[in-house]
Amino acid sequence: MLKIKNLKAKIDGKEILKGINLEVKPGEVHAIMGPNGSGKSTLAAVLAGREIFEVTEGEVEYLGKNLLEMTPEERAKEGIFLGFQYPIEIPGVSMVNFMKTAVNEKRKYHNQEPLSAAEFLKLMREKKAVVEIDSNLTNRSVNEGFSGGEKKKNEIFQMAMLEPKLAILDETDSGLDIDALRIVANGVNKLKTPENATIVITHYQRLLDYIVPDVVHVLYQGRIVKTSGKELALELEEKGYDWIKKEVEQES
């Protein structure tokens, strides 16, 4: 589904990603962990098409296409979804209008008729239930005045609405209390199918109790330095990142 080869990217002349290699297959859940500043969020943003990062080298193939040539909106319509670490507040733009535009743009792209108002509202209702989101939230402006937990739930709600093939969740667990964490994780699990894949970016092992990964990667200094099964997350939780840093230093 997704093949990343030797991906390098920089911002303001500073290289952040220094050769990422990663392959994700349909149905898989990958966790990307790593200390602060290792490049996790940059990787997510580059995959979603954030233009402030300059890709200097490497390839990304997504469903047989060159991902790096696509605009952010094309990527989204091809099924990539980025769950933001810090969802943006957009005053004056209602959630309903936002989601309706997004869903119908995607439908248009796939040569489907736009949803009628009634169909759209029905879809909204169904998906709200998936993430246990308060009805009132969707009547408000996008993320405006939402609490941290509400913003993250709102990300998963949008994911449910857009039914992505590849979801990249950037620190979706940060700032969540245990109840919100459970709801968010449940949402992600409910949306899981054998055809879609998820990349979960996280600091802590905590989220991975709920979203069980098939593969765990450790990103450090712009490279994936370790890849293993889910037990790696537990090991990191127990021992921290220092031993990995040491391993990297010894190798170099």
């Binding site: 909106e73 319509k77 933001f84 957009i90 733009v93 936002f98 743009e105 402006s141």
Partner: peptide
Amino acid sequence: LDDNALFYLRSRGINEKEARMLLMFGFTYE
């Protein structure tokens, strides 16, 4: 127009022109 907001909208599949429209419209909403 706020670049972060623009990217947020585009990352949901809304094309740039439409995203700019939504942001300008949102700006006038108040």
